[in-house]
Amino acid sequence: MIRFTKVAKHYPTGSEPALADVTFHVGRGEFVFLTGHSGAGKSSLLKLMYAEERPSAGDVRVSGFTIGALTADEVPRLRRRLGIVFQDFRLLEDRTAAENIAFALEVTGSRADVIPARVARVLGQVGLEHKAGAFPRELSGGEQQRVAIARALVNDPPVLLADEPTGNLDERATRGVFQLLRDINASGTVVLMATHDLDLVRQAGHRVLELRDGHLVFDSAADQEEPA
């Protein structure tokens, strides 16, 4: 589902590469943690996956798309096959939970008559059926992140990218959101979660990719990885 081959990323303003010689592969149904200190390259790696950035060298493939060769018209098509979740939730403050989720369907051209049922389904999936009419300011951090996850899921993406999704949450909310991501993964969606929370990583027992200064220094599944 995700394949990086000798990927490098240089920004015009930086003297050091944000990513250098990164190679890994994530297969169907996997749950992968992406760890590393601040500035290690986690966000750059995620940005390459959703084509916010293009690789300076190497090859990035996500859900059948080759990121380096994407035309501007193909970027929306790629993103419709990805769910993306951020630390700061990125919800529209003037829309309710249901409207925030429906927005993702509307802007991708879904038929108006199917939207309510799909919104209700994902709200149920994240356990927020009763909060459909609540505005983000009326929700706790954990609930806002659940709405963001519901929005990411509503287009049934095969891959969910989560950039520090529990970074702004207390421990209880963190456990809740993490469990939700595991449930989503259990239903077949690939989940790639960037996090600082090493306790969570250790306890979960999922595959771990660790970045340091733009280099992939650890891959817990390296021994089982097929040769590229």
Binding site: Y50, A72, D73, P76, R77, L78, R79, R80, I84, R90, L92, F103, A104, V107, T108, G109, R151, N155
Partner: peptide, 16 residues
């Protein structure tokens, strides 16, 4: 700006 970023992230086309 925030709304536009979200639209892009969920796959809205440029013309949309």
């Amino acid at each position: 700006a925030r709304e536009i970023q979200i639209m892009r992230l969920v796959g809205a086309t440029d013309w949309f």
